[in-house]
C-alpha cells in the first residue's frame, strides 16, 4: 500500500547568518523546514557548537570541566585554542571580568582581551558581556570597535540596551544577539526595534534564555518550535537563527554536580553530567536551535556525532 508522504508547504525560511570572515566563516540558519526533515525542505547549514571561554578563571565550574581545561583557564587565548582542539566551530568569549561585582573591568581592558583572542584563533568569535545591561552598553561598543571587520556575534542585547549595541554592530560590521526571557512577543518586538535602526535582519540571532534539562527545557523547546513555525510561515521577525546557552544552564543543574555518594541512585557523576549537557543540546537542535554554546569537550563530541547523523537526509 503506497503511503502518500505528508509534506507541509512552507512559504518562507530562516535567515542565513554569517559569522566571521572568509575563509573561516561559519554559516547558520537558512532552513526551509523543521529540523532535519529533509523530505520537505532544506537545511543548508548544520547546528554548530561554540565553546565557552571566560576572561577570568571561573571558581564555580565542575571538576570534570576544570580537568578538561587544566592549565589554560587563566589565559583566554590559550583557553580558546584548547577549545578549537576540542572541535569548537566557534569561540564564545564571556567578559565576566566586566561585571561590577567582580573586577568591574573597563571597556578598554575587555576590548584588549577580545582582540587578543580574536587575533589568535581561526574560527569565528561570539562575545558576550557580563549580563549587567548598563555595563554591557558601555563595554560592548568599545569591544565592537576593537574587533572591527571581524564580523563577530555580539551580545546580549536587551530592550534596555539594544540601541548602543545595535549601533556598534552596524558601524563595525558585526551581528547581534537579541535576548528575551522565553517570550516570543518580546523576541519579535526586539527584532523589530533592531531592524528599524537599520541592522539587517540576517545579522540577528535570537537568544531565548533557555533552561536546562529538568529546569525549564520544555518552555524553551516550545518557544523555539513556535518561532520556527512562525519563520516558516512568513513571520520575518521570527526568522532569526536561535542561539542556546546550553553549557551554563546544564552545568548549574544538581544532576550535573552531585557526587555519586550524595545521590547513589543517579549513577556515576561524569557520565551523567556530560549527558545532561549533551541531551540538553540535542533536544534544542531538534526544537530548531542553531548555535549551541557548550562547555564539556565530550558533550561536544557526542553532540556533533549526533548531528553528523541527523544531517544525512532520510529516504522517504
Amino acid at each position: 500500500m503506497a503511503v502518500t508522504i505528508a509534506k507541509e508547504r512552507w512559504n518562507s525560511k530562516v535567515n542565513e547568518l554569517v559569522i566571521g570572515v572568509e575563509p573561516n566563516s561559519v554559516k547558520v540558519g537558512g532552513d526551509s523546514t523543521l529540523p532535519f526533515l529533509f523530505f520537505e525542505g532544506e537545511m543548508p547549514n548544520r547546528p554548530v557548537v561554540a565553546l565557552e571561554v571566560c576572561d577570568v578563571e571561573p571558581d564555580d565550574w565542575a571538576k570534570s570541566l576544570t580537568d578538561a581545561y587544566k592549565g589554560v583557564m587563566g589565559d583566554p587565548v590559550a583557553w580558546a585554542k584548547k577549545c578549537i582542539e576540542y572541535g569548537a566551530d566557534m569561540i564564545c568569549l564571556k567578559l565576566v571580568s566586566s561585571h561590577p561585582d567582580f573586577d568591574n573591568a573597563s571597556p578598554e581592558e575587555c576590548a584588549k582581551t577580545a582582540k587578543a583572542v580574536a587575533d589568535a584563533i581561526n574560527v569565528p568569535l561570539i562575545v558576550i558581556g557580563s549580563g549587567v545591561e548598563e555595563k554591557d552598553a558601555e563595554v560592548l561598543p568599545v569591544v565592537a570597535g576593537a574587533l572591527e571587520g571581524k564580523a563577530v556575534l555580539l551580545g546580549n542585547a536587551a530592550p534596555s540596551n539594544y540601541k548602543t549595541i545595535t549601533a556598534a554592530c552596524m558601524v563595525n560590521g558585526h551581528s547581534i544577539i537579541a535576548s528575551n526571557p522565553l517570550d516570543i512577543n518580546i523576541a519579535k518586538q526586539l527584532n523589530i526595534l533592531i531592524t528599524e535602526m537599520g541592522l539587517p535582519a540576517n545579522r540577528i540571532a535570537i537568544d531565548p534564555l533557555v533552561g536546562a534539562l529538568g529546569y525549564g527545557i520544555e518552555y524553551a523547546y516550545s518557544i523555539m518550535e513556535r518561532a520556527r513555525l512562525g519563520a516558516l510561515t512568513g513571520d520575518k521577525m521570527l526568522a532569526m537563527p536561535v542561539i542556546c546557552f546550553v553549557g551554563q544552564e546544564a552545568w548549574k543543574a544538581k544532576e550535573a554536580k552531585a557526587e555519586i555518594d550524595e545521590t547513589p541512585e543517579w549513577g556515576e557523576l561524569e557520565r551523567r553530567a556530560i549527558l545532561w549537557e549533551a541531551v540538553t543540546a540535542t533536544t534544542f537542535a531538534h526544537a530548531s536551535g542553531a548555535i549551541m554554546v557548550m562547555r564539556h569537550p565530550e558533550a561536544v563530541r557526542e553532540f556533533k556525532r549526533h548531528i553528523d547523523k541527523m544531517m544525512q537526509p532520510a529516504s522517504l
Binding site: 534539562l213 529538568g214 527545557i217 520544555e218 518552555y219 523547546y221 516550545s222 544532576e255 541512585e265 543517579w266 549513577g267 556515576e268 557523576l269 557520565r271 551523567r272 549527558l275 545532561w276 541531551v279 533536544t283
Partner: peptide, 20 residues
C-alpha cells in the same frame, strides 16, 4: 540500565509531557 543514562531520559520525558 545505567542510572546515569536513564535519569536524563526520564527527566526529558517528564518535561516534554508536562502540560504547557
Amino acid at each position: 540500565s545505567d542510572p546515569a543514562d536513564i535519569l536524563p531520559l526520564i527527566t526529558l520525558r517528564l518535561n516534554i509531557y508536562t502540560d504547557p
